[in-house]
Design a protein around this nucleic acid. Structure first.
Lengths: 211, 211
DNA sequence: TAAGTTGTATACTCATGGGTAACATTGTGG
DNA sequence: CCACAATGTTACCCATGAGTATACAACTTA
């Protein structure tokens, strides 16, 4: 009895299935617009009305897709966090020495941080989120730091990374990478890949000239 | 005709001179309390009432010392920026190779960024400031970046620093340093000096082990 | 002691913006 | 064809928080 979904897709009377798909598309559009405005003006300085007008709709329509403003912000950072975690998994999958995996991770991390959702992650302060969201946000960030720390420690053992305090080293690395979100200009001369490569190169080689 | 100021200082009727001194002390107290709250909860989430209650006074009293909320924030970041610029001047004064001066600068920079006003500088987003303040804030930050970039370039010439894109390298460095404000815990195991030294070491030596 | 200056509090005003109630419209399914 | 669900709008409510008008107390100075 299942109607042919290929046919149904083309029909203007697309049915319930297509409706929920439409809903997702619209929800996504709200998110995309919101994150852009949040990054431009900041979360507090962006009103739901601002987001609505940018989409040619009105405020209650937005509340039809999201429970409240906090949920919108949380969804934005969640997407960014997800991308970063994906980058970590991909790097691990590639294998190689700890240094190689770390470099792969950092490169992808840097690229994520040039995207809208990535920018939102590093620019959103904990206290801007609701209590519940904040808890999850913090936990995710800790998890990421932990994952990087672990690779750094492995590198100190397998000899591919210089010894030191792994925690402090991790913060030094993520600091450089997170900060990209503060200055990167998509209309600038450097592509995300250029920035990622340059940044990773400096972190790996250091400032001192090799001789 | 000028009264003996040493005598006047001890009298309970201290006169106009002492009054303006008192005023400065109180203004400073407002600033110190404000910056602490701003760093804890964020600028928008901190009301003037919050600052007032923390000081056991009321809102209008604060407006007796500051024209508006923006002025308070601006004064906070100004103090932080000043400290960073002082660090730059001190490092230049010490002399040495570009690398030596850069290291001295970065070390001091890192320490400033663990102080309340320093934290405020890196955590305050441009759009939180008034239009006028924003302009000055941005200009100051650009100036600092420019100063660091200049030293980096000098180092590439005198051979004390590895070659590369000086601008990108500068952002990589300041990223690590600025990010300290996001994670540093004054009650933690590491002192500001420990953090500064460790961070600078990683940036100079890189992750790769020297052989 | 009267007038002025400084610092502080009480008690407002007022704009902003998150969120909602109620209603209109339209396609969907029985 | 009718009821229902989904989507959207207009028109509101209400809390918060920046900033102020005004009164008042205390000390200074003439």
């Amino acid at each position: 009895m299942a109607a042919n979904s290929a046919l149904r897709r083309k029909s203007p009377w697309a049915g319930r299935e297509a409706r929920t798909r439409e809903r997702e598309v619209k929800r996504e559009a709200v998110l995309r617009t919101a994150v852009t405005l949040f990054n431009e003006r900041g979360f507090h300085a962006t009103s739901i009305d601002d987001v609505a007008t940018a989409l040619n709709i009105t405020k209650p329509t937005i509340y039809h897709y999201f429970a409240n403003k906090d949920e919108i912000l949380f969804e934005c950072v969640r997407r960014g966090i997800d991308s970063i975690q994906q980058a970590g998994l991909a790097a691990e999958k590639k294998g190689g020495s700890a240094m190689e995996r770390l470099c792969a991770y950092m490169r992808e991390y840097a690229i994520v941080v040039t995207t809208d959702f990535g920018i939102c992650v590093t620019r959103t302060a904990d206290h801007e989120l609701s209590a519940a969201a904040r808890k999850r946000f913090r936990a995710s960030k800790r998890e990421i730091d932990r994952a990087i720390s672990r690779v750094v420690e492995e590198g100190m053992i397998d000899g591919s990374i210089a010894t030191g305090d792994p925690r402090l080293m991790t913060f030094t690395l993520t600091g450089s990478l997170n900060w990209i979100a503060q200055w990167f200009d998509p209309k600038g001369a450097l592509s995300p890949e250029d920035v990622a490569d340059g940044c990773v190169a400096t972190l790996v080689q250091g400032l001192a000239p090799r001789r």
